[in-house]
Simulated scan of single mutants.
Amino acid sequence: MIIDLPDTTTSQVAKNLVKAREEGGVVALGRVLTLIIAANDDVAESAIDAANDASREHPMRVIVLTTSDGEARLDAQIRVGGDAGASEVVVLRAYGDAASNEESLVTGLLLPDAPVVVWWPREAPEAPAASPLGRIAQRRITDAATADDVRAQLEVLGRTYVPGDTDLAWTRLTHWREQLAAVLDQPPYEDVTGVEVRGSAASPSTALLAGWLRLALDVPVRWAYEPVDEWAHGIKSVRLTRSNGDILLERPVPGSAVLTQPGQPDHELHLPRRTLRECLAEELRRLDPDLLYGRVITEGWELLEAPEAVA
């Protein structure tokens, strides 16, 4: 069910939301959190689709806030039932002066006594925790991969980091980190003496993986960006150097990786690029601060040397 509310107020939206739940037989008691999506119209629908998919694991109330110039006005749309997955979605489009106070627009629509998560699918404030929406949230999700200059964006994220911040560029690394940790948990248990990470220049995950390995292994880490015309997205390879030979985890084509280890046959692994829905669902599983991400974006980033140039 979809209810359009042109030129409305947040109190009217709240009343219509209660009415829609009662008429549709939907209850709010099973909602575990409020997810606020701050997005422009061009990415709002894809973000809603990802949230609806994630809601099957995390039933929630989704508040989508878009702001634009123009005469002061608030338009809203309520989606419940099959149009909202396992969530209930409130889309707020604020114009002109009506968009000047983002916090007041959403406060009356938050679920009582439930955690609040804010997600910026594209442009995020320079200091998310200090922003009007960030101040009312326990978790704040950004995506450095959408920035024009990913290195500059990582520097900003590290400089402004506050516990509760996280970034989807870090979430996309989960399977890479799992594979590398599994390899190092197997004999022979020899120390790693060096690391090399290669990936796309458009991927902040390259630097974050290098920073994580620098912290975890406490060894020098070389990292380099592959030319864009050779590798379009994500991590390409990780090489771990040990005295008995190198371990190489390489993704020669999207979706598939090859693990090469001394004295063993090559292993082909399924290592696809993670979907937006998968990354969002993972972030919503934990509402406490991701302290490891905090260390990587601050300490790990500062320990890295500049990336090497690749011809």
Rank of each mutant, 00 (worst) to 15 (best):
V91A: 01
D113G: 04
P188A: 06
A232Q: 13
A51P: 11
L157M: 14
V296T: 04
V183F: 11
A137Q: 08
D167C: 14
G255E: 11
P204C: 03
E299C: 00
A207H: 06
D49E: 13
E196G: 00
P265R: 14
I63S: 11
R172F: 10
T275I: 06
A98N: 05
A311S: 07
I36F: 08
G134S: 00
L154R: 04
D218Y: 10
V90N: 00
L184Y: 05
R242E: 08
D229C: 08
V219D: 03
T174L: 12
A72W: 03
L173C: 11
M60T: 09
V228N: 09
A130V: 03
I247K: 02
V32Y: 11
V197I: 03
E196N: 02
D83G: 11
V156S: 15
L248F: 02
E282A: 10
P132V: 00
C279D: 15
M1T: 10
S256L: 13
I247Y: 05
I63G: 11
A145F: 00
A76T: 03
T146Y: 00
E226F: 11
E250Y: 03
P220H: 02
E45H: 07
E57Y: 09
S256W: 10
V219Y: 01
T193D: 06
L105K: 09
P254G: 09
A145M: 00
G24R: 07
D143P: 02
E102F: 11
G30H: 12
Q77T: 04
R273N: 06
G85V: 00
T10K: 05
L291E: 12
E178A: 12
R140K: 06
G194C: 04
D53M: 14
R222V: 07
R172M: 11
Q264R: 14
L33Y: 15
T260Q: 07
T160M: 06
W231N: 12
N52D: 14
I37C: 15
V13F: 05
E103A: 12
R295P: 05
V195H: 02
L111C: 04
D49C: 07
R239A: 08
Y225H: 12
V13L: 13
A232I: 10
P121S: 07
E88F: 03
Q12C: 13
R79V: 01
A20S: 08
G234L: 12
D266Y: 10
W120K: 11
A281S: 15
A137Y: 05
G245A: 06
C279E: 15
W170R: 14
P307I: 07
A181W: 13
V89M: 01
A51F: 12
G294F: 14
E178R: 12
L215Q: 15
R31T: 06
L65S: 13
Y189S: 13
V116R: 01
L154E: 05
L110V: 03
R135S: 05
